[in-house]
Design a protein around this nucleic acid. Structure first.
Lengths: 198, 198, 198, 198
DNA sequence: AATGAATGAGCGTTCATTCAT
DNA sequence: AATGAATGAACGCTCATTCAT
């Protein structure tokens, strides 16, 4: 009866969905929700705009879903840092590179968009209030505290140190999103100087 | 019913124009050209949206004008730094604070918007190609070179150092535009560590 | 894997067609052509929306076909009344009940939709001009005239009487289509009072 | 300062609003909310579709507003009947004519649309549950009871009598909305026979 | 025959811009 | 100069229809 069997259909659906998600993520991350037109997502995914709506209910719904995913992913990313080998400073180096890595993770960018864009869905606003930057800072507190005890990191309130560092990385990430030759992402060594005392 | 004389009329025109420019600058800087609605500019300037068109041909034209002004202003700002008293590092500190200063200078922000926003007028695109970041770097080269000679700044290609530093500042500026409690602008002392050798 | 012979195939086709027609008729009758989505017909018929187009060229074409059928059926229905036993009034009672009977004949409803809906195909519009209400009135003229002669029906122009009565029935049918508790279909006895003189 | 004074502006606004309301009412009443396209309202009101949104927030909002008004108006209309001179039957005659009167009151029609259309806003659905047909029946109960006592009206449950009569009128009204020559609204005398005993 | 993925015309709504006053 | 009424291009989304399998 069924001309394409269930498995094939499922596969097509999953691929398309993944394809659209990738496209949307990359566009949303760079341009925010208001700056992203459905035609951009459709073009990036190589589909007609109509097809989008076979897979997702609306632009807002997809954006919300992606932000939720991004939140989880980003926090996981932070947690994972503890499993890495090396000293606290070495771990921070890895984290730094992960965040700034070109194609790396648009998740952090999407979170920036969710925090600052106009016209974000109500649900996203709530999510952003729920998961303030503190959630991120808290995850890194043990690592930075350890680094301070080891004398690898500058002294002072570790929460401030983390928040400042993450802000610098976020800012660079935002610029980096446009891979505009006008902006130069500093070398990791240079960035780590922000954290290390004289 | 004394009609206003030409001079008075001129003055009114100029004041209104200035008023609109200030309003538009502050909105454009934060939201980019696509994210800015004419109603926002009108509201911020305290005029009707219709009146806007007595003073400017279009949103695009005003944006273009503002970007041109911003380019000039920003470059002047850099030049002015040389007139300040103090060591190179002290001058850089002043510059840093000027750029990050809250209400300070939306010019730098506007340039960021001009570089990255959607829907920027063609003329602005050309302007951005013409005045690449190099224009900024070049202005600061003597200052940084002097700082390096004085041993105040880290060694290495000064152009890279400048570009990296400006990028960090730009990134922070962008975050700062939203005065979101989630982002913390680092203390100037901390930022200067980026530039100073161990 | 015995292939089905031609006759079996034909039978399947005919059954499917009938199934779709029944589904479409019930939905079109209630919602009109514009208010009916292809997905409704497909769901009601228990088929995929794609299959519909193996049997009919378009929604418009099916609607047109159905209206044509409905015209014929409805007129036959009126003719059949003559074969019923009983006095003219008794025959009219039967007709009344047939028209208002819940699941009874959506044909009359479909004709209402064809007369009043938006977006009816051109061909249907022509059909409606061709078969005006007069066609219906004419069929009933002998019956009503007989009823008047028998003193069962009120005096006056029988054509007017018929047109009025059919209009009342049509109106009730339209309300009835929504089986909304808010509307109450009068008892047949009550309706017949419309036709009987004091 | 103001080129058109407040009064003039107010007048223009009020006229336009009234003009749009009239247009929308007439279209909504005939075609329901889903069958009404914004272009129809705009065309009927003789304005551009864009202008509509200077006066009303959305199609749904206007529909809802109109239904609310219609509810109030319709119930008032029923109440007013008591102030009329004459016997109960004479009052019912007036009411009948008011409801069926051609350009008369599209309010009753709009209520029909609100009850039966697809895609009515949630608020309207609630309104319709709140004000069931009973609200209408209740208003007429004293009148009909009096008519029965006076022997002018047929015996039986007066609530049923009213509901049936209103349903007949509603049905006719719906047909009448299309002023299609195919449907003939019966004379009031004829309709009143529904209510009068032999 | 049958499915559902895919397309694109069209609708509701927003917003930059024009124009009568 | 100043206002806000008015217009229409463009966007998000729905749905009839087509097509690969």
């Amino acid at each position: 009866m069924t001309p394409l069997n269930d498995e094939q259909l499922h596969q097509i659906r999953d691929e398309r969905k993944e394809q659209i998600i990738r496209a949307a993520l990359s566009v949303f991350a760079r341009r925010g929700i208001a700056g992203t037109k459905m035609s951009m997502i459709a073009a990036e995914a190589g589909i007609s705009h109509g097809l989008f709506y076979h897979y997702f209910k609306s632009k807002d719904e997809l954006f919300t879903t992606l932000v939720q995913q991004a939140m989880t992913e980003a926090l996981h990313e932070l947690d994972n840092i503890y499993a890495m080998p090396g000293s606290p400073l070495q771990k921070i180096r890895v984290l730094t590179e992960a965040i700034l890595d070109e194609g790396g993770k648009p998740y952090f960018l999407l979170i920036y968009q969710a925090r600052t864009s106009d016209g974000v869905p109500e649900q996203v606003k709530q999510l952003m209030e729920q998961y303030s930057m503190n959630a991120f800072v808290d995850r890194l507190l043990p690592l930075f505290a350890e680094g301070q005890r080891a004398g690898e990191l500058a002294a002072g309130d570790p929460a401030d140190l983390i928040a400042s560092y993450l802000s610098v990385l976020s800012g660079l990430m935002v610029l980096n999103a446009w891979d505009d030759a006008n902006y130069k992402i500093p070398q990791t060594d240079m960035l780590l100087r922000l954290l290390t005392a004289r």
